[in-house]
Amino acid sequence: MIFDIIILVVFYLIGTIWIEDAHIKSLEKREKKYKDFFITTIKTFDTNAEKAFLVSGSAVIASDIFKKYIASWICFFGGRIQTFEKLLDRAKRESLVRMCEQAKKKGAHGIINIRYETSSISKGKNKKSISAAESLVYGTAVVLKK
């Protein structure tokens, strides 16, 4: 029992405090770069465009033992699973930043008609299987006429 608690605390410190917080900090830093970048889910584009192409970004983020443990208890009693909400949020933000990076590298001025796609890599029914969230985001990058 005490051994279990020690393991949980250790993985909480590594998984949530160390890895997750570092990831969120790096995301905030990179998101600032794309604050003025034009991203929309609107399909049509009225302004004169020179060319358009598809861009996409994806990320697979794994959960840790502590998150799984908390989630299994919340699944029993019901309620919001905040540990997993944070996980999916990280995956979505990471993939969006990657898409923006790709678009900017190719000289685009904005991205229209973006679509999110989320899937779980593995269901995680038995204890050995991998549980991770995959997020894919894609859209049409547009280069404006000079």
């Binding site: 949530t16 890895i19 994806s58 990320a59 697979v60 794994a62 840790d64 991998i130």
Partner: peptide
């Protein structure tokens, strides 16, 4: 897959799977 299983203990990004996709 083994590497991903280990990463699953502590969390973080699974780069090999991102690459796969």
């Amino acid at each position: 897959d083994l590497g991903a299983g280990f990463k699953n203990l502590i969390g973080g990004e699974l780069r090999s799977y991102t690459e796969l996709l």
